[in-house]
Amino acid sequence: MGVWKQAWKQKGTPSALILSRQDTPYQLAETCWEQTLKWGYIIVAEDEAKPLKAIIIATGTEVDPAIVVDKTIKKNIRVVSMPCVELFEQQSRAYQEKIVPNNITKVIAIEFSNDYVWYKFVGKTGLMLGVDDYGLSGSADAVIKYKQLEQISIINRITAYLGE
C-alpha cells in the first residue's frame, strides 16, 4: 500500500510497480505501509540481547524466503525488506546505519532478478544470492531450482556462509 501511495504522489520522477506472476505469501501482517515509505526497514528484528550474526536484505517475493531462513537456522539474524534501494539511499545516514549498520560484515542479499545493485550492501565479505545473467527459459520452479534459489538451497548456502 505504501509503495502504491508513493507512486501515485510522485511528480518529479517516473515510478513503476513490478508485480509477480507467481504466488507469494502476503506480508502485510508483518509490517505497515508507513514503513515502506522509508524504502528499507526491519521486517524481522534480531534479539537485541545477543550479538547480531547477520543481516539478510530482500525485496518483494524474496522477503518470505528470507524470513523462512531466519526461522529455520535461528542464528540471531535481522531481515530487512528494501522495496527501493535508490529511495532508501535518500534517507538520512543515521536511518540507513540503523537499518544496515556498517560494522556488520555478514550481510546477505536475496534477489531473484539482476543482483548488481546489492553489492553495495553485501560488500566483499557478504553473500549475494541472485541471478547475474539472462536467457533462461522454463517454468519459474525450474529456473529457480537451476539457479539454486529454492528455499532449501538458500538455507544451505546461508548456513554454509555463516560457518555453522
Score class of each variant (00 low, 15 high):
residue 37 L to D: 10
residue 50 K to W: 09
residue 148 Q to K: 15
residue 3 V to R: 13
residue 61 T to W: 00
residue 101 P to K: 03
residue 74 K to Q: 14
residue 49 A to V: 13
residue 155 I to K: 02
residue 159 T to N: 07
residue 81 S to V: 00
residue 4 W to N: 13
residue 92 S to I: 00
residue 99 I to D: 00
residue 42 I to L: 01
residue 84 C to W: 04
residue 31 T to I: 13
residue 18 I to L: 15
residue 30 E to N: 15
residue 100 V to C: 01
residue 27 Q to V: 12
residue 108 I to Y: 02
residue 44 V to D: 15
residue 160 A to P: 05
residue 25 P to N: 07
residue 66 A to R: 01
residue 133 D to R: 07
residue 132 D to L: 09
residue 37 L to Q: 15
residue 41 Y to Q: 02
residue 148 Q to V: 10
residue 9 K to Q: 15
residue 117 V to F: 06
residue 154 I to N: 06
residue 155 I to H: 06
residue 13 T to G: 10
residue 25 P to S: 10
residue 144 I to Q: 12
residue 60 G to C: 01
residue 64 D to N: 13
residue 128 M to D: 12
residue 16 A to G: 13
residue 97 E to H: 04
residue 150 E to A: 13
residue 42 I to R: 02
residue 91 Q to V: 06
residue 10 Q to N: 03
residue 138 G to E: 01
residue 151 Q to Y: 05
residue 1 M to N: 13
residue 162 L to H: 00
residue 114 N to S: 08
residue 100 V to Q: 04
residue 68 V to W: 06
residue 61 T to K: 12
residue 75 K to M: 05
residue 123 G to D: 00
residue 91 Q to M: 09
residue 60 G to K: 01
residue 54 A to D: 04
residue 139 S to F: 07
residue 159 T to F: 07
residue 39 W to I: 05
residue 124 K to Y: 04
residue 18 I to T: 11
residue 148 Q to D: 13
residue 107 V to N: 03
residue 64 D to H: 14
residue 43 I to Y: 03
residue 13 T to P: 02
residue 155 I to D: 01
residue 42 I to E: 04
residue 29 A to W: 06
residue 161 Y to H: 07
residue 138 G to F: 00
residue 140 A to P: 09
residue 113 S to F: 11
residue 4 W to T: 14
residue 81 S to M: 10
residue 123 G to K: 03
residue 53 K to C: 11
residue 98 K to N: 08
residue 136 L to N: 07
residue 160 A to H: 03
residue 75 K to C: 06
residue 133 D to I: 08
residue 50 K to E: 13
residue 27 Q to L: 15
residue 23 D to H: 12
residue 12 G to V: 11
residue 11 K to A: 07
residue 157 R to H: 09
residue 85 V to W: 02
residue 152 I to A: 15
residue 19 L to T: 15
residue 23 D to P: 08
residue 115 D to M: 12
residue 97 E to A: 05
residue 82 M to H: 00
residue 79 V to I: 03
residue 157 R to Q: 14
residue 111 E to A: 05
residue 11 K to L: 12
residue 70 D to R: 07
residue 147 K to V: 07
residue 43 I to R: 06
residue 95 Y to L: 05
residue 34 E to Q: 00
residue 60 G to D: 08
residue 61 T to L: 09
residue 113 S to L: 11
residue 52 L to H: 02
residue 109 A to D: 03
residue 34 E to T: 00
residue 66 A to K: 00
residue 11 K to S: 09
residue 36 T to M: 11
residue 3 V to Q: 13
residue 25 P to Y: 09
residue 2 G to P: 01
residue 22 Q to P: 07
residue 72 T to Y: 02
residue 68 V to L: 08
residue 44 V to T: 10
residue 118 W to D: 08
residue 113 S to M: 11
residue 90 Q to N: 06
residue 161 Y to R: 04
residue 157 R to I: 10
residue 79 V to Y: 00
